[in-house]
Simulated assay, not measured.
Amino acid sequence: MSSSSTPHHAATKRAGIPLGKIAGIPVYLAYSWFVIAGFTVIVFGPLLQLTRPDLDLGFAAYFVALGYALLLAVSVLVHELAHALSAKAFNWPTEKIVLNLWGGHTQFESFTASPGRAVIVAMAGPASNFVLAAGVWVLIETHVFTGVTLLLADILMSANLLIGIFNVLPGLPLDGGRLVESAVWKATGSQDKGTIAAGWSGRVIVVALVIWLIGVPLLSGGPINFNYMLITVVVCGFLWMGASSSINHARLRSRLYLVSAAGLADPAVGVPNSATVADVLAMSPGGRPAVVICGPDGKPQGVVDPGAAAAVPLEATSLTPVTAVGHALAAGAYVPEWSKGQDLIQYLARLEGGEYAVVDHNGAVTGLLRQQAVVTAITGKEPRRSGRP
């Protein structure tokens, strides 16, 4: 993933509570994690009291349930660290790891992937959980744990098996979806086609899970566990949103070749801010090409409003400065005419305003790029026109 352009302190605040660094990678605990931790305590506390009377836990069952939530967080952290460390082997920089309501995610900075490397990084996560589950199983079999510690060890082993098995399912946003993505990517040469295929595979998995975990129990007429059903609905909803997001992002990426400053810009000319409206009307009859106002240093600083220029009385055009009929551009709102694709989009995202002057290698204005033209090129959808006059 691309790194955010937001200031570091703002990004850190939104990420959650900093837990420190592991192998140089910042780890954060999102505030949403406390929601799933609270749910775990409320649901599993009473359940432990009922199902394990031999331990005579009493109110301590809630603390054991909290331990379950913490062990689950540790399991997710191991999973995400495996992603990050395997990516580090390929020189893919990791921005941060965040533990959140849905488990967690590893956010990468810009990198160049390949089908094989993408699979290795994706599968490292589930593999780490299988290894951790196997290690805990060995300790259990050697009777190292007893009582509550044995209970927690069982939970840790089961949680890692569940995380590992769940994540190898072949559909995005699960790690197994990278297998589908990479296979289609390798066959077609298009990562975007692979991502779309893996996203649809993820949707199929969601439908299958809903039928299996909700539909079948309901049709069987047996007792309904509402907590179990709620968890299924929430998880499947998250998976559906993740699969849909992957499909939409891939479709947008597949149109990036259409995003070009030179190709999307309207023709424009630059005039010094000392020019008059008469100069503008002579250079741009009827408002075309667009006229960009440049400062003494030659850098774009504003755009002429054709309607305002045409409204100036003829006898006053030679006396009216061009700055009187223009509006300012945002600071630094100009781009090289050779800018295109993801680099152009990321650069424009850092600028304010909806208009950007386009300049050539000599700094001369050649076009005026409007934000809506970029959005239309990416989405393929024309802006909605208001029915109001």
Results as ranks from 00 to 15, higher is better:
W33C: 04
G307P: 00
H9R: 15
V138D: 00
L218K: 01
R385C: 01
Q346G: 03
F226V: 15
R288D: 12
L139N: 01
I196N: 10
K340Q: 14
L213M: 12
A183K: 01
V168I: 15
K299N: 10
L209C: 13
N100L: 03
V74A: 15
Q191Y: 01
L99Q: 02
R288H: 07
Q371R: 14
L172F: 11
T149G: 01
A333W: 10
R350G: 15
V148D: 05
G20P: 08
M123E: 01
V216Y: 12
G116E: 03
R117M: 08
L70H: 11
L99P: 02
G363L: 13
N167K: 01
P383T: 07
D154C: 09
A69N: 05
I165K: 03
F111W: 11
L209F: 14
A23L: 08
F108H: 13
A183Q: 01
G387P: 12
L151C: 03
A113C: 00
L368G: 02
V207L: 15
G177T: 11
A37Q: 05
P173N: 11
A357R: 04
L29A: 07
G164A: 05
A23C: 06
T320Y: 09
L348W: 06
A349S: 15
V168E: 05
L48G: 11
G341E: 14
A357F: 09
A37W: 03
A250N: 09
S246R: 06
L218S: 06
L57T: 08
L281N: 02
L57F: 11
S201E: 00
A187M: 14
L368E: 08
L252T: 07
S260Q: 12
S318I: 03
A183L: 14
G67T: 10
K299E: 13
V119L: 03
G287W: 06
V27Y: 01
R14S: 08
D154V: 00
T379G: 04
F90G: 00
I120A: 12
L150D: 05
L230F: 14
E352T: 07
